[in-house]
């Protein structure tokens, strides 16, 4: 009898990669994921820890300091009302990143529920649910968002719910395909033979098997929602002024850049690009690992 190839000391449940030592080595072997995660953590620190360091209000209007370009005293310059653009960028990151992440959580939960139910339903019901999903997917997200945005008061909570509700169908389709791929596996049959019910199989075998691919698509969804939210804010349908958000800052800056205030579009544009890049790098990194590249 051969000894096992390696000997982990204990088990780590759903997330074996979260064991500190393994996490570090996993990141070393996946530089793309590590770079994406680093960039993402930088943006999170910028948005949530940054305000603690600078003690400057993003709302304080200073008529004497209009349109100051970046300098040592105003690192990212000031805007059309003399507000510190650094502070506005930092506070603006909170809704941009937070709404996208929490919206993704809602989308993942809804997508998993719908997709797994469909994959585990009898064939006729599965077909009905999937055709319904096709119909929902056919609706353009941005148009749908604009429609809903006209109906409700826009704040962080309503935006989280709206973004969550429009982005679950893609995840539902992925979840359903994963269920179909795994539900005929021998280990699922073995559990059925011990009397396992559908609920048990969904919670344990199926969920654990599909977790990595769901994680990948969740990161892509976050990137997608950062962009969607920026687009909405740009159009004035997102986070409402005077509260800052990257998309809103970009929209405001686009009117002012023509008079030379280039920093008012460069920095919010850069932040949005970096956020999307970070999430896509993470997702692609995990995907590469899953596919053994």
């Amino acid at each position: 009898m051969n000894e096992p190839r390696s000997t982990p000391e204990r088990r780590w449940g759903l997330f074996p990669a979260l064991h500190a030592g393994r996490f570090a080595s996993a990141l070393r072997s996946a530089p793309l994921t590590a770079a994406g995660l680093g960039l993402f953590l930088f943006l999170v620190a910028f948005s949530w820890l940054g305000p603690l360091l600078i003690h400057t209000s993003p709302y304080a209007i200073r008529p004497a300091l209009l349109f100051r370009p970046p300098s040592w005293s105003h690192p990212l310059g000031t805007d059309d009302l003399g507000r510190s653009f650094l502070a506005r960028m930092m506070y603006g990151g909170q809704p941009s990143l937070g709404v996208a992440m929490l919206g993704t959580v809602i989308a993942v939960v809804l997508g998993l529920l719908y997709g797994m139910s469909s994959g585990l339903s009898p064939s006729w019901l599965d077909k009905v649910l999937m055709r319904t999903l096709d119909a929902i997917l056919a609706l353009p997200t941005l148009v749908l968002m604009i429609f809903f945005a006209a109906l409700v008061r826009l704040d962080a909570l309503s935006l989280i719910l709206l973004l969550g509700f429009v982005s679950w169908p893609g995840l539902a389709r992925i979840a359903r395909n994963e269920v179909l791929a795994y539900k005929q596996r021998d280990y699922v049959l073995a559990a059925r033979q011990f009397g396992a019910g559908t609920g048990y199989l969904a919670r344990t075998h199926l969920l654990r098997s599909m977790l990595p691919i769901v994680l990948v698509n969740a990161t892509f969804t976050v990137a997608d929602l950062v962009l969607t939210l920026a687009g909405l804010s740009f159009l004035g349908l997102g986070i409402q002024p005077p509260n800052p958000s990257w998309g809103g800052l970009l929209g405001n800056g686009s009117n002012l850049a023509i008079i030379g205030a280039w920093w008012l579009i460069l920095f919010p544009g850069l932040a949005i690009v970096l956020a999307i890049l970070a999430m896509n790098m993470m997702g692609q990194g995990i995907l590469n690992r899953l596919e053994g590249r």
């Binding site: 596996r185 280990y187 033979q193 654990r208």
Partner: peptide, 29 residues
């Protein structure tokens, strides 16, 4: 009555520990 499948690579969930795998019938029953 129990069953042993052909390919243990397929019949043992790679995401479970062996403890979870072997105790699974007992937990389910």
């Amino acid at each position: 009555m129990q069953m042993v499948f052909q390919d243990p690579g397929e019949s043992l969930n790679p995401r479970f520990t062996i403890g979870d795998i072997v105790t699974e019938p007992l937990r389910l029953l």
